[in-house]
């Protein structure tokens, strides 16, 4: 498999580390139900067929964390985004949120 890193270009799979689901969001520690939310965040994953949004780390390259959209049966990759940009888009700057 080859992943097109937005910084480094298309590189071989062995430069990357897979690190799981990119759709789970770290809960707020102050939430009254934080205990359950963190259990779900840390352990619970569904594994539906089709396209997945996954976190990958370009460990033997630029050290960027990436959000890769990939079909788990076909290994077809439809997008590779910089994780920081994805995170910033999904969560506007909230420096004082904790």
């Amino acid at each position: 498999m080859r992943i097109a890193c937005p910084y480094c270009g298309e590189r071989s799979l062995d430069e990357f580390l897979y690190s799981g689901d990119a759709t789970v969001k770290r809960p707020d520690f102050a939430s009254p139900t934080a205990a359950n939310e963190f259990v779900s965040y840390t352990y619970e994953r569904s594994n539906p067929p089709g396209m997945h949004r996954e976190l990958w780390y370009h460990s033997a390259g630029c050290h960027a964390w990436l959000v890769v959209t990939r079909g788990i049966a076909t290994h077809a990759i439809t997008s590779v985004e910089v994780a920081r940009d994805v995170a910033l888009n999904e969560k506007p700057a909230t420096k004082d949120s904790i």
Partner: peptide, 19 residues
């Protein structure tokens, strides 16, 4: 040594990109 850097990059880029 390697794992901690990876972990820090994860936290900085994905969990708290605003920092």
């Amino acid at each position: 040594a390697v794992k901690v850097v990876q972990h820090m990059e994860y936290c900085a880029q994905w969990l708290w990109p605003e920092l």
